[in-house]
Computed example of a mutant assay.
Amino acid sequence: MSSKNELFKYILARLALLPIMLWIISSMVFILLRIAPGDPVDAILGTRANELARESLRIKLGLNKPLINQYFEYLNHLIHGDLGTSLNTQEPVKEIISKSLPASIELAIFAILIASLLGYLIGFLGAVKPEGKIDFWGRIFSIGTYALPPFWAAMLIQIIFAVLLGWFPIGGRLSPGESPPPPVTGFLLLDSILIKNIKLIFSSINHLILPSFTLGILLSGIFSRSLRLNLEEVLKKDYIEAARSRGISNSRILVRHALPNTLLPILTITGLTVSSLIGGALLIEITFSWPGIALGLKEAISQRDYPVVQGIVIIISSLVVMISVGIDIAIAYIDPRVSY
C-alpha cells in the first residue's frame, strides 16, 4: 500500500473523529450545567419571586421537561445548526457569539504575533551561544513570564502604562463617544481600515496594544523555551556533528540544518496556542474590559444562561478540535517520519 493511500486513510480517520469528539464535548457541557448548583430561574427572577411566576418562566424556557427530553431537543437543535436563544436576553446565541468572537480572535492574533516574535527571537539567540548571557537571561525570562499570574501582570501593566504614564487607554476597544464602524468582518481594526477612518484605526490599535502585549508577554516564555529546548536536542544529532566536521559554520548549521527540523513541534505549539487563546484569555479580557467571547462566557455562567454557555463552549471546542486535527494532518503530510 502506497504512502499516499495510508496518508489519505489517516486523514479520513482523523476527520471521522471530529463529530464524535464534538458530541462528547457537547454532552458533557449539557450534563455539567444541569448538575451544577444554581437555577437559571433564580438568576432571571431572583430568589424572592413567587412560585407561580417561577413555574411560568420554567415552562416558557422548557426547563420543566424531563432531562432526557431536554437533551435530545438540545442535540436536535445542534444537528440543525441552532445554538438556541439566551434565557436572559432572548437573543439568538449565534448573534451573541458573532458579536464577541471576532474581538477574541483579533486579540489572539496580535498576542500570538508578539509572543512569536519575542519568544522565538529570545530562544534562537539563546541557542546561538548556549550558556551565554543571552541564554541565561532568556531562561530567566521564560520561567518568569510563564509563572506570572495573568491578572496580576495585566493590572501591573495597566497601572504603569495606562494610569501612571497615560500612554494607552485602560480598557475597552474604543474610546467613549466613538462609534464602531459598520460590522463587515466583525474585526474592529479591519473594518476601520475598510472604511478608511484614520481616527478609528488609531483608536482601535491604541486600545489593542496593552491587552495583546500583556498576553503576548505571558505566552512568549512558552515559545522561547520550546524553541530553545528543541534546538538544543537537534544540535546533538549525528548529522549536525557531521556538518561541523566538514567545517560548516555554526550560524549556518543553526539556520540551514537545525532550525528547519524544529519547525514541526513549533507549529504544533503555535497552532494549539492560537486555538486555546480564542476562549482562554478570560482573565485578560476581564481585566481590560475586552468584549470577547471569554468575557461573554464568564457573564453567561454567572447568570446560569445555559444556551449561551453551551453555544460558546461548543464553538470554542470546535475551533480547538479542528485546528488540532489540521495540525496533525499537516505534520503527517510534511514529515515522512510520522507513522499513520
Score class of each variant (00 low, 15 high):
Ser3Tyr: 13
Glu6Cys: 04
Phe8Asn: 15
Lys9Ser: 08
Tyr10Cys: 09
Ala16Asp: 07
Ile20Pro: 05
Ile20Glu: 02
Trp23His: 01
Trp23Leu: 14
Ile25Phe: 02
Ser26Trp: 13
Ser27Cys: 12
Ile35Ser: 07
Ile35Asn: 06
Ala36Ser: 15
Ala36Asn: 01
Asp39Asn: 15
Val41Asp: 02
Ala43Pro: 05
Ile44Trp: 01
Gly46Leu: 05
Arg54Ile: 05
Arg54Thr: 05
Glu55Met: 01
Glu55Cys: 01
Leu61Met: 13
Gly62Cys: 09
Asn64Cys: 01
Tyr74Lys: 04
Tyr74Cys: 00
His77Asn: 15
Gly81Ala: 14
Asp82Ile: 04
Asp82Leu: 09
Leu87Phe: 15
Leu87Asp: 07
Thr89Gln: 12
Glu95Phe: 13
Ile97Glu: 07
Lys99Cys: 00
Pro102Leu: 03
Ala103Met: 04
Ser104Ala: 03
Ser104Phe: 02
Glu106Thr: 00
Phe110Arg: 02
Phe110Leu: 03
Leu113Asn: 06
Leu113Lys: 00
Ser116Pro: 03
Ser116Ala: 15
Ser116Gln: 06
Leu117Ile: 14
Val128Ala: 05
Lys129Pro: 06
Ile134Glu: 03
Ile134Gly: 07
Phe136Trp: 12
Gly138Cys: 07
Gly138Phe: 13
Ile140Asp: 11
Ile143Ala: 12
Ile143Arg: 11
Gly144Lys: 00
Tyr146Glu: 09
Tyr146Arg: 11
Pro150Gln: 08
Ala154Glu: 08
Ile157Glu: 05
Ile159Gln: 10
Ala162Thr: 00
Val163Trp: 11
Gly172Phe: 05
Ser175Val: 04
Pro176Ala: 01
Gly177Trp: 04
Ser179Lys: 10
Pro180Tyr: 01
Leu188Lys: 11
Leu190Cys: 06
Ile195Gly: 07
Lys196Trp: 14
Leu200Arg: 13
Ile201Lys: 12
Ser203Lys: 12
Ser203Ala: 10
Ile205Pro: 11
Leu208Ser: 12
Gly216Gln: 01
Gly216Lys: 04
Ile217Gly: 00
Leu218Arg: 11
Leu219Asp: 00
Ser220Leu: 08
Ser220Gln: 08
Ile222Val: 11
Ser226Glu: 07
Leu229His: 07
Leu229Lys: 02
Glu233Val: 03
Val234Met: 13
Leu235Ile: 11
Lys236Cys: 06
Lys237Ile: 07
Ala243Asn: 07
Arg244Met: 10
Ser249Tyr: 04
Ser251Cys: 00
Leu254Asn: 08
Pro260Thr: 10
Leu264Gln: 13
Ile266Leu: 15
Leu267Ile: 10
Ile269Gly: 02
Ile269Cys: 04
Leu272Thr: 03
Gly279Lys: 04
Ala281Val: 06
Ala281Ser: 10
Leu282Phe: 10
Leu282Ala: 09
Leu282Lys: 06
Phe288Lys: 02
Pro291Ala: 02
Pro291Tyr: 06
Ile293Gly: 00
Ala294Lys: 08
Lys298Pro: 00
Arg304Lys: 15
Arg304Met: 11
Tyr306Ile: 12
Ile312Tyr: 11
Val313Met: 08
Ile323Glu: 01
Ile323Pro: 08
Ala330Tyr: 13
Tyr333Ser: 10
Ile334Ser: 03
Ile334Lys: 05
Pro336Gln: 10
